[in-house]
């Protein structure tokens, strides 16, 4: 990798200041993503700013919800009792990320802000849009793990973050700071579909900004279901997954939040699936209908048509889990 300087700020203020110093500076959390990219010459910062000592690493109750520091390790998120009581889908997503080693090192902030897992992006040979080139290799190439939604291009990645999906489903807000101040961005507005203008990034964060907290509103009474389709048991990425949160009035679903992962350049909210659920009772048939609805608008590429079936299954099983039904 290219030689770089390492800054170890003690607080938020120093950290955002360090991001503004001369040269290209980038934050590093657990380093599970950025170090691999640096070794492969995909990313070449002049300076790494360690956020693990600078940012909050605690999970604190606020207003019936939780405030999760960006420096919280994925393992700690997965094992936190309050998280699993209030937001079981977050625990479910966290425990499946990568491997135990990745979860022990990886941070919440790093997970949300990790760069695409697309193999064209991750290999130096392919100068694609995301690396400043002028083409996406996926449509004509090996796209079995690429997007089936949001495929208008120019890039056809799937968003890599597992945590982003339930965060979005639970209506999280992200607290973002820079040397000029701070703002809160709803998770739903944080991730960006690619355009020729923004394709070098996957979200609205500016280069000098840090994500410091995930703020989760009180979940209310709800049923939760999360289902990931993974080929291997560990050290692998999901083929597709779904997170489902259902509010009930009596036996009837009064509102639904369905967000899909690994299917689009952003965590993909499926309003079609949500509509298919609202007003229905909990049953396998309802779940299957939601699955069908979820994929109705899918636009797969040449080699990932199978992901439509996989996604349909993920949605169906997530709903069944929420309903307390046996999935397989």
């Amino acid at each position: 990798m290219k030689a770089f300087a390492y800054v170890n700020p003690a607080n938020e203020k120093e950290a955002v200041a360090a991001l503004r110093d001369a040269g290209v500076a980038m934050p590093i959390g657990g380093g599970q993503d950025i170090l691999a990219r640096m070794k492969d010459y995909i990313t070449a910062p002049d300076r790494l700013v360690n956020i693990k000592n600078a940012l909050d690493a605690t999970i604190t109750p606020v207003a019936g919800g939780l405030r999760i520091g960006a420096a919280v390790k994925i393992v700690d998120l997965a094992e936190n009792a309050q998280v699993s009581r209030l937001y079981p889908n977050i625990s479910a997503a966290a425990i499946e990320v990568g491997t135990p080693q990745i979860r022990n090192q990886g941070t919440v902030g790093g997970n949300i802000n990790q760069r695409p897992r697309c193999w064209y992006f991750k290999n130096e040979e392919f100068l694609c849009y995301k690396k400043g080139g002028n083409r996406c290799f996926a449509p004509a190439g090996e796209n079995q793990y690429h997007a089936i939604f949001g495929n208008d291009g120019p890039s056809h990645i799937v968003h890599p973050s597992s945590l982003a999906v339930p965060f979005l489903a639970y209506g999280a807000k992200f607290r973002v700071v820079s040397a000029s101040g701070e703002r809160e961005v709803a998770a739903a507005n944080f991730f960006t579909l690619p355009t020729l203008q923004n394709v070098l990034k996957e979200n609205v964060l500016a280069d000098d900004e840090l994500l410091t907290h995930v703020i989760l509103p009180a979940p209310g009474t709800a049923r939760h279901g999360h289902y990931e389709v993974r080929y291997k048991e560990s050290h692998d990425w999901p083929l597709a997954f779904a997170t489902v949160i259902l509010k009930m009035s009596g036996q009837t679903i009064s509102s639904a939040s369905v967000v899909l992962g690994a299917v689009a350049p952003i965590p993909w909210r499926s309003e079609e699936a949500e509509r298919a659920l609202v007003g229905k009772t909990l049953s396998e048939a309802t779940a299957a209908a939601a699955g069908e609805a979820a994929v109705r608008g899918a636009a797969p590429l040449s080699r990932n048509g199978y992901k439509v079936q996989v996604t349909k299954t993920a949605v169906k099983r997530a709903v069944m889990r929420a309903a307390g039904l046996r999935t397989v």
Partner: peptide, 19 residues
């Protein structure tokens, strides 16, 4: 890659092996 002839998974992340 069928177009460029370059390997897309020359690692142990996307070249899968049983754990």
């Amino acid at each position: 890659d069928r177009v460029t002839g370059q390997m897309v998974n020359p690692n142990m992340e996307m070249y899968l092996l049983a754990g």
